[in-house]
Design a binder for these strands. Structure first.
Length: 920
RNA sequence: AGGCCCGUAGCUCAGCCUGGUUAGAGCGCUACCUUGACACGGUAGAGGUCAACGGUUCGAGUCCGUUCGGGCCUACCA
């Protein structure tokens, strides 16, 4: 059996097996019998076009830790998985595929992608809605499962029986229902307004999908001559090509310089159109010349001016960003070519006054980086102010807690300044807008099911709306639509509101905010009680990971290399709320070492467990089952072992409490470092070492009581540790847990209780005592190392005035000798006479009796250094105690602590000085 | 134009909310150790004017203000 346990942990040998088993057994389907508590969370649905990146990995790690933790604490846990149809991303991929099929000869050419896209768009229109959507579904079936397979491999404890997709038939019905209700209430309207138009994607996009970036540009100052009489106005513009669509020039009504011009007519350069000068408060007299050209069809502000002054709207740029017939001689030019041409022509005609450098904020399409064109277009909009009000209220009054808290302000600020949302997209893949137009009478019909005839004129000639909804429209319904809404299902009753939502900051507005609005609107309740915003995973140099930079780490690759548990742990221990994570393979490597450490601790235990008689192992298995409702404690052992037992159980109790507290507040890094430190530097470094003789000894016949106690307590501590580690490292802990001796064969550690050790075993006195023993051991090792005697096994003397300390140390003499590497140890009551080799501990002195002579120069240097340090500390301490203000005003225990410290430092320094004195 | 975050050991970060022993961790570094769990290991160690200045306080890495440096977000000024 011992041969079965490999010397080095190899995750690839066990992870896929457990991942499969967890799914096959449907372990993470919440039990239908009502547990006293439930904990529900829906996944932020990844795109079907995507594959897992480090951000998902972090998100899923954090969620999975919490889900496993809640589950082990007895809650009925639902983590509902699913994917998002990603309207624009999917359509672009499928179009590109179509183009590639049509033009295979472009393979490898630099311009192939955009050529394929254009060809793909053409072929889409050619094949029509039905055929194209078939292709999309086909693509989804073939490629949309990537994320699911990855999540399965990584062991996410989701309920796959409830897997959802935003275009499931039931889900789509919910989308239509929401659209119809909002339309009926007047919260959705259709109209011709300025929208953000991406000429490359060929669709409108929402404000959030426009990325603003500062770019160097120019301000062109153009002379606009008056129609009658001499003179001209000078207007400044960053986009000269739009002047072709100007229908006015605006000035501020209070601007003295232009008062006489208001109401006059101006001749638009190049085109010769006569346009008025209007007065409008929007104009800032201090900017540029104080006179603004007004292009209502291509600028949102100008559009509003045109509304106030009833100005015509002339479209000069089309949906592919080419100049229209309205642009006269510039027709057919691309907008940027037109800019060159217009500037050139103005210059030639002497109508260009000057050009200034000017940094301007350019809006680009989030998806394709093309400069977005503000364009007049008929679209569907959602009125947001009214919907936002309750969503603001629930965050203000704490019904939804946003963590970390600074995101609360960001959320509220955005919500309070919200604009109407353009929800229609000129795309085909997605939820078709449930609207029809009567060809006979022009009636607009919004309906949940396809209408048969026009309700107004009863003709049957109805044309469906061509467009689909913004993907985020459907995502906003995710917390309730996934649970069956609008049907009043059992799931909906049981799991709405969700308890928690975890997402990245990048989708707080896109998704978080909208979920809250829709939840309040349609469920009359919050979608979740807490919203935790996780960090961004950056590369080792703190750069954002991006495909173009080529610094993207594939979580699956990293996982294959180091194991899922190591990657999870590396992420968790780095995940301090509000701080981005600098991720590197080095980091993962060090937590692979941790996994290996766990593995080898188990290996040591299990190998040695072969030594006691089989009957004892069976007894041990019984002891591993904690009595229901009771926390485990230590069984009685001889005094030489009992201190370590009391100490480790006490630590275990503390660690359990700290873990719970940390996870309650999303402090993953604290939780992870707590358990890391406990397992490695307390359990392995001290407890296991302490027990080693009992564990490794071979006994003939009946096991002596000391060994029985040692084994029992060790197994309890080790098992309890596996429980605590499980949410962070599910695979290795599951594997090892199953290898423990046990009488019952339970399904999975993930369904076992989290905390086996109760608060009751906390024992501060034992912890303090253990620390004294530890201190002696460390001091002795230190003394050996500093005198170059690591290889020796010297004898040592310990002296203390405190009889209890002496007794304590004497009781653990053998262990101390073994762990410190000492040949013998003798004890003296009282103080040790000053001597260069005396070391001072808290409450005791230690001297090594070296076999070989020690270099006096090195000793003196060491003492000198110690002296300086002590003097420094003492001076500081004295200064504090001399301060009457401190002594009279600080709390008594603080003053007492300071006094105690002063005494210790003084005593220590005295000894060092004496020792130095003896040397000279 | 507003707003947010960060600046602590060579590197990556905790600690700051709730002020009080000697400011912690991981990686890296140095010395020693292949000891029958583990070299993905063990033992010991070096390394910090907590960005700067000022304030509050008996006491500031921690609270407040200012400055400098870095990052990010929101916004309809041509």
């Amino acid at each position: 059996m011992t041969e079965e346990i490999a010397k080095v942990y190899s995750p690839d040998a066990i992870e896929p097996r457990w991942a499969r088993e967890w799914i096959e057994r449907q372990l993470y389907r919440p039990p239908s019998d009502a547990a006293p508590e439930r904990f529900a969370l829906v996944i932020p649905p990844p795109n079907i076009t995507g594959s897992l990146h480090m951000g998902h990995m972090l998100e899923h790690t954090e969620i999975d830790i919490l889900m496993r933790w809640h589950r082990m604490r007895g809650a009925s846990v639902l983590w509902l998985p699913g994917t998002d149809h990603a309207s624009i991303a999917t359509q672009m991929i499928v179009e590109q595929e179509l183009g590639r099929e049509a033009l295979p000869q472009l393979e490898g050419k630099p311009e192939s992608k955009s050529a394929w896209r254009r060809e793909g768009q053409r072929r889409r229109r050619e094949m029509g809605h039905e055929k194209f959507l078939e292709r999309c579904w086909e693509w989804k079936e073939q490629n949309g499962g990537t994320i699911r397979r990855q999540m399965e491999r990584l062991g996410a404890s989701v309920d796959w029986t409830r897997d959802r997709f935003t275009m499931d038939p039931a889900y789509s019905r919910a989308v239509a229902e929401v659209f119809a209700r909002l339309y009926e209430e007047g919260l959705i309207y259709r109209g011709k307004y300025i929208v953000n138009w991406c000429p490359r994607c060929g669709t409108a996009v929402s404000d959030l999908e426009v990325i603003h970036e500062e770019r160097p540009g120019h301000l062109w100052y153009i002379r606009y001559p008056f129609e009658n009489g001499k003179g001209y106005l000078v207007v400044a513009t960053t986009r000269p090509e739009t002047m072709l669509g100007d229908t006015a020039v605006a000035v501020n009504p209070s601007d003295e310089r232009y008062r006489a011009s208001v109401g006059r007519k101006i001749v638009l350069p190049l085109l010769g159109r006569a346009i008025p000068v209007v007065a409008d408060d929007f104009v800032d007299p201090k900017f540029g010349t104080g006179a603004v050209k007004v292009t209502p069809a291509h600028d949102p502000n100008d559009f509003e001016i045109s509304e106030r002054h009833n100005l015509p709207r002339i479209e000069v740029i089309d949906d592919e960003a080419r100049m229209t017939a309205e642009a006269g001689p510039y027709q057919g030019l691309d907008r940027f070519e037109a800019r060159e041409a217009v500037v050139q022509d103005l210059r030639e005609r002497g109508q260009l006054e000057k050009i200034e450098d000017y940094a301007l904020s350019v809006g680009t399409c989030q998806r394709c980086k093309t400069v977005v064109e503000p364009r007049l277009s008929t679209q569907w909009f959602m009125k947001m102010k009214q919907l936002a009000a309750p969503a603001i209220r629930v965050v203000e009054d704490g019904r939804i807690r946003i963590v970390p808290e600074n995101y609360r302000k960001i959320y509220l600020d955005w919500m309070e300044n919200i604009h109407d949302w353009c929800v229609s997209r000129q795309l085909w893949w997605g939820h078709r807008i449930p609207a029809w137009y009567c060809e006979a009478c022009g009636q607009v019909i919004v309906a949940r099911e396809t209408p048969q005839s026009c309700p107004k004129c009863h003709t049957k000639d109805l044309r469906p709306d061509d467009d689909v909804l913004d993907t985020w429209f459907s995502s906003a319904l995710w917390p309730f639509a996934t649970l069956g809404w609008p049907e009043e299902t059992e799931d909906l009753r049981r799991y709405y509101p969700n308890d928690l939502m975890i997402m990245g900051f990048d989708i707080l507005f896109f998704w978080g905010a909208r979920m809250i609005m829709m939840g309040m609107k349609f469920m009359k309740d919050v979608p979740f009680r807490e919203l935790y915003i996780h960090a961004l995973v950056r590369d080792a140099e703190r750069q954002k990971m991006s495909k173009t930079k080529g610094n993207v780490l594939d979580p699956l690759e990293v996982t294959e290399k180091y194991g899922t548990d190591a990657v999870r742990f590396a992420l968790a221990i780095s995940a301090a709320p509000g701080t981005d994570i600098a991720f590197s393979n080095d980091k993962v490597e060090s937590y692979r070492a941790f996994a290996n450490k766990i593995w080898n601790a188990a290996r040591f235990i299990l190998m040695n467990l072969e030594k006691p008689p089989a009957a004892f192992r069976e007894q041990l298995a019984e002891g591993l089952q904690p009595p229901a409702g009771l926390g485990l404690g230590a069984v009685a052992a001889p005094e030489s072992l009992a201190l370590a037992d009391r100490w480790i159980f006490s630590r275990l109790a503390t660690v359990t409490r700290e873990l719970n507290e940390a996870l309650e507040t999303f402090r993953f890094h604290e939780a992870a470092s707590t358990i890391y430190h406990f397992f490695w530097h307390e359990l392995c470094d001290w407890y296991l070492e302490w027990l080693k003789p009992e564990i490794t000894a071979i006994h003939s016949g009946e096991l002596p009581p000391a060994a029985r106690a040692a084994w029992t307590n060790l197994m309890r501590v080790f098992e309890a540790s596996l429980h605590l580690l499980h949410p962070f490292m599910p695979f290795i802990t599951e594997e090892l847990w199953h290898r423990l001796p046990r009488v019952r064969h339970e399904t999975s550690l993930s369904l076992a209780p989290f905390a086996l050790v109760g608060e009751r075993v906390a024992d501060p006195v034992s912890e303090k005592q253990f620390q004294i023993v530890q201190e002696l051991i460390v001091l002795a090792r230190n003394a050996k190392a500093e005198t170059g005697a690591q290889k020796e096994k010297p004898s040592a003397q310990v002296a203390s005035e405190d009889l209890r300390i002496l007794e304590l140390l004497r009781a653990h003499q053998e262990t101390i000798q073994r762990l410190a590497g000492l040949k013998a140890l003798n004890f003296t009551r009282g103080r040790m006479t000053a001597d260069p080799s005396v070391r001072v501990g808290s409450g005791f002195d230690l001297r090594l009796l070296h076999e070989q002579s020690v270099d006096p120069a090195a000793e003196r240097a060491r003492l000198q250094k110690e002296k300086e340090k002590l003097e420094r500390q003492l001076a500081q301490s004295k200064k504090q105690l001399d301060d009457q203000n401190f002594v009279s005003r600080a709390p008594r225990e603080v003053v007492r602590g300071a006094e105690h410290r002063f005494e210790e430092l003084s005593a220590h320094l005295k000894k060092v000085l004496e020792a130095l004195g003896k040397m000279s």
